Amino acid sequence: LAPENRHPTQVEDVSDALQWLYDNAPRFDIDPQRIGGWGYSAGAHLILMAGLDRQQAPYLNGIVAGGTPADLTAWPNSPLVFGLIGEKLVDAEQTWREASPVNHVSEQSPPVFLYHGQWDKLVEPEQMTFMQEALEAKSVPVETYTVKFTGHIGAYLLAGGAERKAVAFLSQRNDNVAAAK
């Protein structure tokens, strides 16, 4: 955890966990083409960072990300981001950009489902828009869902509609894999 461990340690941990899952997929009878990732808030940040880059395995079939901090440069004075990076934006702008999921989208990135609380004051709803625009700019399939009348914690605890749509989104990705076989 930050600040004891700085970026990119957390992303490397998630990438290592995904690699372990792929390496052990046969042992647990898991189809590696049907593995998706899901995270909320810092977890959404990490699964996007680990899963958007499909230049090397492991690959995710789809990503669900809620309350996503997508562009860390939007918070130049954030003690949370400072704790993650260890330097101020003015002193380490490139690192702040590299730690932002919006800058890791490629044409090969997996489809993404984004959801966000309408009244989120911790991670503003514009962050979902930033991520959506970055995905659309690279023609990556993206769906969004706004959890009405909730903030950051409320969207995490009361996102039943978002969760149902996200499960359907991931199921569709798996159906596409099955149809291609």
Rank of each mutant, 00 (worst) to 15 (best):
L46H: 12
D23L: 09
N5E: 12
H45Y: 15
T9I: 05
M49V: 10
Y59S: 10
S41H: 13
Y22E: 04
N24Q: 09
Q56W: 11
N5Q: 14
D16I: 01
Y22G: 04
A57M: 13
I47L: 08
P32A: 00
R27C: 00
W20M: 05
S15A: 08
R6I: 03
L21W: 07
A42Q: 15
V11N: 04
Q10R: 12
T9F: 09
W38H: 08
A57F: 13
Y59E: 09
L46Q: 11
T9N: 09
G37E: 08
P58V: 04
Y40C: 09
V11Y: 07
Y40A: 10
P26S: 00
R6Q: 08
E12I: 14
A42W: 15
D53Y: 12
N24T: 02
L52K: 13
A42R: 14
A44L: 10
A50R: 06
M49Q: 15
P26Q: 02
H45L: 15
D29H: 10
L48S: 07
G43R: 14
D13M: 04
D29G: 02
H7Q: 05
L21C: 03
G37D: 05
W38G: 01
I30D: 01
G51T: 09
G51L: 03
L18M: 11
P26W: 06
G51R: 07
E12A: 10
L52Q: 12
I35A: 01
R54A: 15
R34C: 01
D13H: 08
G37W: 05
A50Y: 10
H45M: 15
L48N: 12
A50D: 08
N24R: 08
W20S: 05
Y59V: 04
W20G: 04
V14Y: 12
I30W: 01
I47R: 05
A50I: 05
R6H: 13
D13E: 08
M49K: 14
D53T: 08
D29Q: 07
M49N: 14
A57H: 13
L18W: 07
I35N: 04
I30A: 01
R27T: 08
G39M: 05
D29N: 09
V11T: 08
Q55A: 10
I30S: 01
A44I: 09
A17K: 12
A44H: 14
Q33P: 00
A44N: 11
